[in-house]
Amino acid sequence: MAKVVVDAMAMQRALTRITYEIIEHNKGIDGLVILGIKTRGIYLAERIANRLKQLENATVPVGELDVTKYRDDIEHDSTENDPKVTVSKIDFPITDKKVILVDDVLYTGRTIRAAMSAIMDLGRPQQINLAVLVDRGHRELPIRADFVGKNIPSSQHERIKVSVSEIDGQDSVEIIDR
């Protein structure tokens, strides 16, 4: 049983609101960089960057972050231990920047912790803020999002499925009872 809790329009609105909140919070976009956590976080990051560009007529750099090997809850293949082997794409410095970390769903917090580790490996930003499309609760770490599209209190038996039109053909957030 899948139930759509955020439709395309609502998702657009959530991203619009997050964009304005980012401007409000940072008093503009100076020194801002956006890092999307793969896979869907990247598309959301790009959309936020597009919106900022529309409003401020300035480009905010967008990077892609792959945090798989930083996850403490996934066992890693020892051959992948070379720190240079990374699929993250960040071709700009992040030291002293204000980083907006973007992901689709905030759940246990472990992805975000891993993402912060990844970022710290790359440089020393001035600050890191977190924007998520959905906060579904059930945190296992002391992590909190600064910008939330929608709070969806969910049971652990449910799955939250975020679709973005770039790869899924539609924009939606669904709750799936498993």
């Binding site: 329009m9 609502a10 609105r13 959530a14 619009t16 609101r17 909140e21 939330v148 929608k150």
Partner: peptide
């Protein structure tokens, strides 16, 4: 008309 929804969501945050 969804500006009213946007307003609701802002109040919601």
């Amino acid at each position: 008309v969804d500006l009213f929804d946007e307003f609701m969501e802002i109040m919601g945050t």
